[in-house]
Amino acid sequence: MRKIHLIIVHCSATRCNKPFPVTSLIACHQERFGFTGYHYYITRDGQVYQTRHEQLVGAHAKHYNEHSIGICYEGGLNEKGEETDTRTPEQKTSLWHLIRSLKVDYPDAYILGHCELPGVTKSCPCFIASEEYATLQPPRQNDLLI
Protein backbone atom coordinates (compact mmCIF):
# COMPACT_ATOMS: atom_id res chain seq x y z
CA MET A 1 0.00 0.00 0.00
CA ARG A 2 1.30 3.45 -0.94
CA LYS A 3 1.93 5.95 1.85
CA ILE A 4 -0.07 9.05 0.98
CA HIS A 5 1.23 12.34 2.41
CA LEU A 6 -0.62 14.78 0.15
CA ILE A 7 -3.97 15.29 -1.51
CA ILE A 8 -3.26 17.73 -4.33
CA VAL A 9 -6.04 19.71 -6.00
CA HIS A 10 -5.73 20.78 -9.65
CA CYS A 11 -7.81 22.41 -12.36
CA SER A 12 -7.88 21.23 -15.97
CA ALA A 13 -6.89 24.76 -17.14
CA THR A 14 -9.76 24.76 -19.61
CA ARG A 15 -12.31 27.50 -20.25
CA CYS A 16 -15.44 27.36 -18.16
CA ASN A 17 -17.63 27.91 -21.24
CA LYS A 18 -16.15 25.01 -23.24
CA PRO A 19 -16.82 21.44 -22.11
CA PHE A 20 -13.85 19.24 -21.24
CA PRO A 21 -15.51 15.93 -20.36
CA VAL A 22 -13.75 13.07 -18.64
CA THR A 23 -13.23 11.35 -22.01
CA SER A 24 -11.23 14.37 -23.21
CA LEU A 25 -9.13 14.40 -20.05
CA ILE A 26 -8.37 10.69 -20.41
CA ALA A 27 -7.46 11.08 -24.11
CA CYS A 28 -5.21 14.07 -23.35
CA HIS A 29 -3.35 12.24 -20.58
CA GLN A 30 -3.17 9.00 -22.55
CA GLU A 31 -1.39 10.88 -25.35
CA ARG A 32 0.87 12.78 -22.94
CA PHE A 33 1.75 10.13 -20.31
CA GLY A 34 0.40 6.83 -21.63
CA PHE A 35 -2.11 6.77 -18.73
CA THR A 36 -4.38 9.14 -16.81
CA GLY A 37 -2.31 11.19 -14.37
CA TYR A 38 -5.08 12.29 -11.98
CA HIS A 39 -6.79 9.89 -9.61
CA TYR A 40 -10.09 11.78 -9.69
CA TYR A 41 -11.81 14.22 -12.04
CA ILE A 42 -14.83 16.37 -11.22
CA THR A 43 -16.90 17.73 -14.09
CA ARG A 44 -18.94 20.95 -13.95
CA ASP A 45 -22.09 19.09 -12.97
CA GLY A 46 -20.30 17.74 -9.88
CA GLN A 47 -19.90 14.20 -11.18
CA VAL A 48 -16.81 12.54 -9.69
CA TYR A 49 -14.88 10.09 -11.86
CA GLN A 50 -12.11 7.88 -10.55
CA THR A 51 -9.65 7.96 -13.45
CA ARG A 52 -6.74 6.15 -11.80
CA HIS A 53 -6.60 3.66 -8.92
CA GLU A 54 -5.37 5.30 -5.72
CA GLN A 55 -2.66 2.70 -5.26
CA LEU A 56 -1.08 3.58 -8.61
CA VAL A 57 1.34 6.51 -8.78
CA GLY A 58 -0.11 9.38 -10.79
CA ALA A 59 1.43 12.04 -13.03
CA HIS A 60 0.08 15.33 -11.73
CA ALA A 61 2.74 16.99 -9.52
CA LYS A 62 6.40 16.56 -10.41
CA HIS A 63 8.46 15.30 -7.44
CA TYR A 64 5.28 14.57 -5.42
CA ASN A 65 3.47 11.86 -7.37
CA GLU A 66 4.89 8.94 -5.39
CA HIS A 67 3.07 9.90 -2.18
CA SER A 68 0.03 11.86 -3.35
CA ILE A 69 -3.49 11.61 -4.68
CA GLY A 70 -4.34 14.01 -7.51
CA ILE A 71 -7.81 15.51 -7.89
CA CYS A 72 -8.68 17.73 -10.86
CA TYR A 73 -11.77 19.83 -11.45
CA GLU A 74 -12.97 20.80 -14.93
CA GLY A 75 -12.23 24.47 -15.56
CA GLY A 76 -9.83 27.00 -14.09
CA LEU A 77 -10.05 29.54 -16.93
CA ASN A 78 -12.81 32.07 -17.47
CA GLU A 79 -14.44 32.75 -20.85
CA LYS A 80 -11.48 34.96 -21.84
CA GLY A 81 -8.89 32.31 -20.94
CA GLU A 82 -7.79 34.01 -17.70
CA GLU A 83 -6.89 31.88 -14.68
CA THR A 84 -9.88 31.98 -12.34
CA ASP A 85 -11.59 29.77 -9.79
CA THR A 86 -14.45 28.60 -12.01
CA ARG A 87 -15.76 25.82 -9.75
CA THR A 88 -19.51 25.46 -9.87
CA PRO A 89 -21.45 24.97 -6.62
CA GLU A 90 -21.79 21.30 -7.62
CA GLN A 91 -18.02 20.96 -8.05
CA LYS A 92 -17.35 22.62 -4.70
CA THR A 93 -19.75 20.24 -2.97
CA SER A 94 -18.33 17.16 -4.71
CA LEU A 95 -14.74 18.22 -4.03
CA TRP A 96 -15.51 18.72 -0.33
CA HIS A 97 -17.14 15.29 -0.05
CA LEU A 98 -14.39 13.55 -2.01
CA ILE A 99 -11.65 15.07 0.15
CA ARG A 100 -13.54 14.18 3.33
CA SER A 101 -13.84 10.62 2.08
CA LEU A 102 -10.14 10.42 1.20
CA LYS A 103 -9.24 11.72 4.66
CA VAL A 104 -10.85 8.60 6.16
CA ASP A 105 -8.26 6.45 4.37
CA TYR A 106 -5.42 9.00 4.57
CA PRO A 107 -6.00 10.97 7.80
CA ASP A 108 -2.45 12.34 7.93
CA ALA A 109 -2.45 13.66 4.35
CA TYR A 110 -2.17 17.42 3.86
CA ILE A 111 -4.49 19.07 1.37
CA LEU A 112 -2.81 21.52 -0.99
CA GLY A 113 -3.45 23.13 -4.32
CA HIS A 114 -0.87 22.46 -7.02
CA CYS A 115 0.26 26.10 -6.77
CA GLU A 116 1.13 25.61 -3.09
CA LEU A 117 3.91 23.12 -3.79
CA PRO A 118 7.48 24.45 -3.64
CA GLY A 119 8.78 25.55 -7.02
CA VAL A 120 5.39 25.62 -8.75
CA THR A 121 4.80 28.90 -10.60
CA LYS A 122 1.32 28.28 -12.03
CA SER A 123 -1.83 29.30 -10.19
CA CYS A 124 -3.57 25.91 -10.53
CA PRO A 125 -6.17 25.25 -9.08
CA CYS A 126 -6.87 29.00 -8.89
CA PHE A 127 -7.73 28.97 -5.18
CA ILE A 128 -5.80 28.18 -1.99
CA ALA A 129 -6.88 24.65 -1.15
CA SER A 130 -5.00 24.48 2.16
CA GLU A 131 -7.09 27.40 3.43
CA GLU A 132 -10.40 26.23 1.98
CA TYR A 133 -10.00 22.80 3.57
CA ALA A 134 -8.23 23.97 6.75
CA THR A 135 -10.73 22.16 8.97
CA LEU A 136 -9.76 18.86 7.35
CA GLN A 137 -5.99 19.31 7.78
CA PRO A 138 -4.03 17.19 10.25
CA PRO A 139 -2.03 19.05 12.90
CA ARG A 140 1.28 20.16 11.37
CA GLN A 141 4.29 18.69 13.08
CA ASN A 142 6.78 20.67 10.99
CA ASP A 143 6.94 22.69 7.80
CA LEU A 144 7.89 19.74 5.58
CA LEU A 145 5.27 18.67 3.07
CA ILE A 146 6.49 15.07 2.91
Rank of each mutant, 00 (worst) to 15 (best):
R32M: 11
I7Y: 09
S68L: 02
V48D: 00
R44P: 13
Q141S: 09
I4K: 09
V57E: 15
H29L: 08
K80F: 10
Y40W: 07
T84C: 15
Q30V: 08
T14V: 09
N17E: 09
V48L: 04
T121F: 07
G81K: 08
E74K: 00
R15A: 04
G81C: 04
G75Y: 00
V9P: 12
E66D: 15
E116Q: 05
K3A: 08
G119I: 00
S123V: 04
C16E: 14
I42Y: 04
L145V: 01
G37L: 03
V120W: 00
Q55R: 04
L95D: 13
N65T: 07
S12D: 11
R52C: 10
W96Q: 15
Y73E: 10
G70D: 07
E82R: 15
K122A: 12
T23H: 12
L117R: 01
S12R: 00
Y49M: 01
K103V: 10
Y49N: 05
G119P: 06
L144W: 14
L112F: 03
S68E: 04
A134N: 08
L136G: 05
R15C: 03
Q137H: 07
K62C: 13
H5N: 12
K3V: 03
T23D: 12
G34Y: 06
A27K: 05
Q30K: 14
V104C: 14
A61M: 04
F33S: 14
T23R: 13
N65F: 07
K122T: 15
Q50M: 04
I7E: 14
V48I: 09
L77C: 06
H5M: 07
R32D: 11
E116R: 02
F20A: 10
R100T: 15
I69S: 00
T51E: 01
H5D: 11
R32A: 12
I4Q: 06
L25A: 05
P138E: 14
L56V: 07
H10R: 08
S24G: 02
F20S: 12
R15E: 05
A109K: 02
S12T: 15
E66G: 09
L56S: 09
F35L: 14
G119Y: 14
